[in-house]
Design a protein around this nucleic acid. Structure first.
Lengths: 245, 245
DNA sequence: CGACACCTTGACCAACGTCAAATCCGGTGG
DNA sequence: CCACCGGATTTGACGTTGGTCAAGGTGTCG
């Protein structure tokens, strides 16, 4: 297999105008879901499509937020850093997820592509103008952000109160719920992120994540397939593990 | 000092109609901030005022969300529980804060009064109807929820990556920023919550929180006054402590 | 004055982190 | 086809932070 993956995004942020919302594969699972045809046309007028190569940044914490994005394909990680380099990943994004919540027009986290990523880009100023004209769009965004907030609160419970084993089990179940939207074989999870990324998401270390995977494997709850995938062998068992059952 | 505090809320959820938004002391710091007079009148038509006694629940995780609230006075804690009783406090609310984010019309956390609390109550159905008619209100709510999301992400960084000392220092600074909106003497923080509450907010135990307060006091960064208050003696020092300086 | 809840302090312990080495695996080049 | 290289992952030995258990202290309220 030659370097197809790499070529996919050799020009980070390379932008093409003129995508067609009608053909969009994430239309039904994204914020554009309930737009009327005329509203959708206005939205389509301001968007463009962007490719970002694996490992490349998309937004940078602290920089002015000039664009918002919808993830069309690929996977993205969001993180915050402490001055000494400690890192907390606040979320992973998959197709249909919205990216670019900002405060005072400044990105509050860094977003980085885990795989080659295709994005639908909204210039912030123009999107904000549209928000005023299309209340329905603002409504969808409110739903989106509220859902993210609920997820963030679940993550606080995980980070503040769960054991390493419960965290890893919860993580796998969360990933599984997330990929329900795609057409993958059930119970097989692709992990586009490294052990280190998982550790920084769960408030653990690479070693502890690795050891915990091993424990869950030996307990017969999951299996680790050749190419970095995880198979859920015992969903009920995993669910019990995730809350201290 | 007799039991004034207790009497204040002996009838939890006792509701009176007919409050006057014009006189509202939190008008300028709440979601009603930018409403036009006619819009405000429509909002006022659906609200009522509620008192809740200290220690009483306001919403309960998992129950149908029939009302949303604005905190007018007092302090509130929000928390989630694991089946075995482990608790994570996801936030503290103060005057001007909005309460009642729900998913599928179900509360995702329990809210409990820390002190006697006055609330401005919005019936959910009627508020949702108003949202459709007053885009500006939806816009304010979106801002509110986005701000909460940003705070939640900071808290994830705290829970996932900070030491006990950094957590407590960050907590005090956060409280201080929050009370900027009120007219309290600078550098004196009232702590309406117990050490146990602080622990459940910071992902620690009561003992560790207590020990860490003692450490910070001995380091000359804070002082603990007689009546459960904290004085910030060295703000720069506290800020350094909060990020591993 | 006494009960009780909350807070503080102390001694000990365990879960997870740190440091280090072995192993796996894809990619590369002979 | 096979030997080798480098990064990611796994595993092991050991250390540390913060948790657990338990005993005092302190303030409040009846």
């Amino acid at each position: 297999m030659p370097s197809v993956k790499r070529d996919f995004g050799v020009v980070p942020q390379a932008t093409r105008p003129g995508p067609q919302c009608d053909d969009c594969e994430i239309r039904e699972i994204s914020v554009c879901r309930s737009m009327s045809p005329p509203d959708l046309a206005r939205l389509q007028a301001i968007i463009s499509t962007t490719h970002v190569a694996a490992g490349q940044p998309i937004t940078h914490e602290g920089e002015p937020a000039e664009s918002l994005f919808n993830v069309v394909s690929g996977a993205v990680k969001l993180y915050k850093l402490l001055p000494d380099g400690r890192r907390q990943i606040t979320g992973f994004l998959f197709p249909g997820d919205f990216l670019g919540i900002a405060l005072n027009d400044t990105y509050v986290y860094t977003a980085e592509a885990l795989t080659p990523v295709r994005l639908c880009r909204f210039p912030r100023r123009r999107l904000e103008a549209l928000l005023r004209e299309i209340p329905n769009l603002e409504h969808e965004l409110l739903n989106e952000v509220a859902t993210e907030l609920v997820a963030a609160q679940d993550q606080m419970l995980l980070l503040g109160r769960k054991t390493a084993r419960e965290r890893v089990a919860s993580f796998l179940l969360m990933l599984d719920r997330g990929t329900k939207r795609t057409n993958r074989p059930p119970n097989i999870l692709d992990l586009p992120m490294s052990r280190g990324d998982i550790a920084d998401y769960l408030g653990l270390t690479t070693e502890t994540v690795s050891r915990t995977f091993t424990q869950l494997r030996k307990a017969g709850v999951i299996a680790l397939t050749h190419r970095g995938e995880v198979e859920i062998l015992d969903r009920a068992g995993l669910e019990a593990e995730s809350e201290g059952g």
